[in-house]
Nucleic acid binder design. Structure first.
Lengths: 216, 216
DNA sequence: TACATTACTGACCAGTCAGTCAGTAATTAT
DNA sequence: ATAATTACTGACTGACTGGTCAGTAATGTA
């Protein structure tokens, strides 16, 4: 993970453009692993292959670094969701499935998957960041799924339901899958793979537990 | 939340028996709200109405306090689940519903509901505690739901499924509901109430999204 | 009342870490 | 080459906090 050095001997490099992204990536890794308060800026800097002083050239404080990590992390991904929705071909179930699988591919399976855990852990300590995340990520993600559900209901593919609540119920297993990787992941080696989990989630979501003939 | 004082003037009380429970309750509240590292022991002690020195009479270190909070917090509740399972009357859907609702009543809605968030946030920093929690709480909780699913399958009420994976998918919305209260809860005032959420979860779980006649 | 016991206190200490800044070396300009 | 610029360094500091312990007061005992 540590920035590979081009010189074999310890030597300075001047790479003004690359530093902020490298520092934010290192900070995300450590914040997710240890929590914000337990992460030392010396460690973040070392992980990015620079000294602590350099970190302060690009971020004014530990809190500003945290904000930057959250704000630039997730936003670009949501655009992809909007695009997928615009290509709706009439099968609401397939669209829902595609969205949930793509989310895993772009977020859950990458290091961005740590952001939900980080944000949940630290929301109480950074109300402004939490509000930003809530307005720009949570609400937008919910909006995406809500639109799919409404498409499914108006086209008579999905039954009537409390749409807003259902959105949260649908997102919960996706989020837990990502969160789990960064918390109990190491304890839970026998766990089935994410693909199986997502398949089970989507199948259950669409069809439920009950045997078909008994459904009212 | 602060321990009410019997004397109106600041005065000492000797209550050896009550202290540990009061200190653990105060610690749970603050650990959940702020995270382990960001919680000061002076604040925990003040919340429990004692001085920091008193805290050290009952707990050897901050980490021991953390362990105590986790270990004695959840365990008693799981016994209730076992008991409910033993009174199975033949309706697997109803038993599953009863278990999930009761979990919310006993854990999610009480201050114990903070423990999942706390454990998820700190699992990486306390591997031994995480292992304890995993073995004694996670596995036991999973086992409960798994038994219900198997009862439902053998009695032909539930369709065939990947039982172990389904268990995790079922538990995820329950956990997220509890976790949310202690993270984005304050940001999310317009949110629907837990009862609606649980009803929606259970209904979706049993019946799925698709309209009945279209199910294969 | 006098003494013994012990729950409790809070000032203190030692270690840690966010944030600083004078100095260094890589790069560019002349 | 020499100078000017600036990305970068790491020793330092001040504030903060986990943990200690000598002392205090509440309670029990005779």
């Amino acid at each position: 993970m540590k920035n590979t050095e081009i010189c074999d001997a310890p030597c300075r490099q001047r790479r003004k453009e690359a530093r902020p992204a490298e520092l934010m990536a290192a900070a995300l890794d450590l914040f997710v692993e240890r929590g914000f308060a337990a992460t030392k800026l010396d460690d973040v800097a070392a992980h990015a292959g620079v000294s602590k002083g350099t970190l302060y050239l690009y971020f004014a404080s530990k809190e500003e670094l945290f904000k930057a990590v959250i704000q630039q992390g997730i936003l670009p991904v949501l655009d992809q969701g909007d695009e997928m929705l615009s290509q709706f071909d009439g099968d609401a179930g397939a669209l829902l499935e595609a969205l949930l699988l793509r989310w895993w591919e772009l977020v859950g399976a990458t290091h961005l998957g740590g952001i939900p855990k980080l944000m949940i852990s630290e929301a109480g300590n950074f109300p402004e960041v939490a509000q930003f995340y809530y307005d720009n990520v949570v609400m937008r993600g919910r909006g995406l799924i809500r639109q799919v559900l409404q498409l499914g209901i108006t086209s008579r593919q999905f039954r009537a339901m409390d749409v807003d609540t259902t959105v949260d119920v649908i997102l919960a297993p996706q989020l837990m899958l990502a969160i789990w990787r960064y918390s109990f992941g190491p304890c839970d080696c026998g766990k089935q793979d994410p693909e199986t989990y997502l398949r089970t989630h989507i199948d259950l979501l669409l069809n439920g537990l009950m045997v078909a003939e008994k459904k009212k």
